[in-house]
Amino acid sequence: MGGAVLLLVIGAAAGFIATRIMRVETDIITTIVIGMAGALVGGLVLRALITVMGLMAGFVGAVLGALALIWLWNTYGTRR
């Protein structure tokens, strides 16, 4: 029971953050489903990268993280 509640809370949080970043208006149920599905897809992709690439997955993750930070900086950072 506790695991299901935790999954709903994490799914709701992840869905809320993702829908706000992408500027999508959804109801609570859709937001939770988006978050839970995103966690599933993200976990599968990460496991596949680690399996296929081994240690190179860390490098790919670092590059993707840097790209995400650059995008966030350009989108929400200080304007010149």
Rank of each mutant, 00 (worst) to 15 (best):
M1K: 13
G2T: 14
G3F: 15
V5S: 03
V5I: 12
V5H: 04
L6M: 02
L6T: 09
V9H: 11
V9P: 03
I10W: 08
G11T: 09
A12N: 14
A13S: 08
A14C: 10
A14Q: 13
G15S: 08
I17H: 04
T19F: 00
T19Y: 02
R20Y: 00
R20N: 07
M22P: 03
R23Y: 03
D27L: 03
I28M: 03
I29S: 07
I29P: 11
T30Q: 11
I32Q: 05
V33H: 08
V33K: 08
A39P: 01
L40R: 02
L40I: 08
L40M: 15
L40T: 14
L40G: 07
V41C: 00
V41E: 04
G43I: 00
L44T: 02
L44V: 00
L46N: 11
L49S: 04
L49M: 10
I50A: 03
I50E: 10
T51N: 14
M53T: 12
G54L: 01
L55S: 13
L55Y: 14
L55V: 15
G58M: 07
G58D: 11
F59R: 15
V60D: 07
G61Y: 06
A62Y: 15
A62D: 12
A62H: 10
A62E: 13
V63L: 15
V63G: 10
V63S: 04
V63Q: 02
A66F: 09
A66T: 06
L67T: 13
L67H: 11
A68H: 06
A68Y: 08
L72E: 10
L72V: 12
L72H: 07
L72C: 05
W73L: 08
N74V: 09
Y76N: 04
R79W: 13
R79P: 04
R80G: 09
